[in-house]
């Protein structure tokens, strides 16, 4: 009977991603009930740097010149077999979701995608999976082991990174056919630009802004708060904003500490992408807009009047600290 958990550590620019630290902490918490050990695996160009956050767990490394999802999935499957582990845990970042699906395919195993809660039940796990972008949550368990789990970033607690011993090489040689698709470059987003899926505060704009130029008011507010800029599907479809900023069922699902919706009416597909935010503020001139039904605080008014005032007031409030 396989036991134990292999946790993939995603390393970017020499730093282990927080989503991976969350997966590691959750694996350690669950292994107390499941039995078996937790082993970390880092794959790719930055694998050697993973020990800066691997803490007390055993670390295996599989360096690659360029990231290949297929090669990483083969390595993760090899580590799982070598350790006779029951679960592979992967932070559900963009890279992580690709890797998790590929690993499930290599192992021909059950896959629990983008889970937000896990519970040990005997020798297996039960998971809460948001479906329909969070309009419902499905509780599932795998019918066989091993199983692959991707864990939604931000849904699990993490510990501060603790350095561990340098990793030992995984006994696995990447197959050349696994290197057919490679990530050959990474262009970092412009300095100060935060991604909506990772930011603690998101300021989003919708069609109520009236023009693409009016988004400058959203940018200004976001800049005062150190927030990411989000957008409704309507303005992305109009070509005002990049699809990378789109929040909702066909965009990104976000759950920041503070979500400020500016000129967004609150179509159900948008609400699905942001209603688990901790605090929601809505500014809209239509008092009947559905966004007010989910907002903790609403201001009824023209964004062109309210936003500059809010930006100025927050600037003053935050500089006074």
């Amino acid at each position: 009977m396989p036991k134990g958990i292999i946790v993939h550590l995603e390393v970017r620019g020499g730093v282990v991603k927080r989503a991976s630290l969350e997966a590691l902490a959750e694996a350690q918490r669950l292994s107390a009930s499941l039995g078996g050990s937790v082993t970390a695996l880092a794959v790719g160009p930055d694998a050697a740097a993973a020990h800066a956050a691997s803490g007390s767990v055993k670390l295996l490394t599989c360096p690659l010149e360029h990231w290949s999802t297929e090669a990483a999935a083969n390595a993760l499957a090899a580590a799982l077999r070598a350790e006779d582990a029951a679960f592979a845990f992967i932070g559900a970042t963009v890279q992580g979701r690709e890797l998790a699906a590929a690993t499930a395919a290599v192992l021909d195993a059950p896959y629990l995608a983008d889970v937000v809660a896990l519970r040990a039940n005997g020798t297996t796990l039960e998971a809460d999976r948001p479906i329909f972008a969070g309009k419902a949550v499905l509780v599932v368990r795998p019918v066989a082991l091993p199983a692959v789990v991707s864990l939604r970033p931000g849904a699990f607690a993490s510990n501060a990174p603790v350095a561990g011993a340098p990793g030992s090489p995984l006994a696995h040689t990447p197959d050349a056919t696994a290197l057919r698709v490679l990530v050959t470059a990474l262009a970092a987003a412009a300095a100060g630009r935060k991604d909506v899926s990772e930011a603690e505060i998101v300021v989003s704009g919708g069609r109520g802004l009236g023009t693409p130029e009016a988004f400058q008011m959203v940018e200004d507010l976001a800049s005062v708060l150190g927030a990411a800029v989000g957008a409704s599907r309507a303005v992305v479809d109009l070509g005002w904003r990049s699809h990378a900023e789109q929040v909702g069922q066909t965009g990104k699902v976000v759950a920041p500490k503070l979500y400020i919706a500016c000129g967004i009416s609150g179509a159900i597909q948008h609400l699905a992408g942001m209603t688990t935010s901790r605090t929601i503020v809505a500014i809209n001139k239509d008092p009947e807009a559905p966004i007010f039904k989910v907002a903790d605080y609403g201001i009824v008014g023209d964004v062109a009047e309210v936003l500059p005032a809010l930006t100025a007031a927050l600037k003053a409030a935050l500089s006074g600290r």
């Binding site: 629990l112 969070g134 419902a136 949550v137 599932v140 795998p142 907002a295 903790d296 609403g298």
Partner: peptide, 18 residues
């Protein structure tokens, strides 16, 4: 490969404060 145990709807938010 997955057994569905339960489907739940998210808790409704207590919004609406203007």
């Amino acid at each position: 490969r997955l057994e569905a145990l339960k489907l739940e709807l998210p808790r409704a938010r207590q919004g609406g404060r203007i």
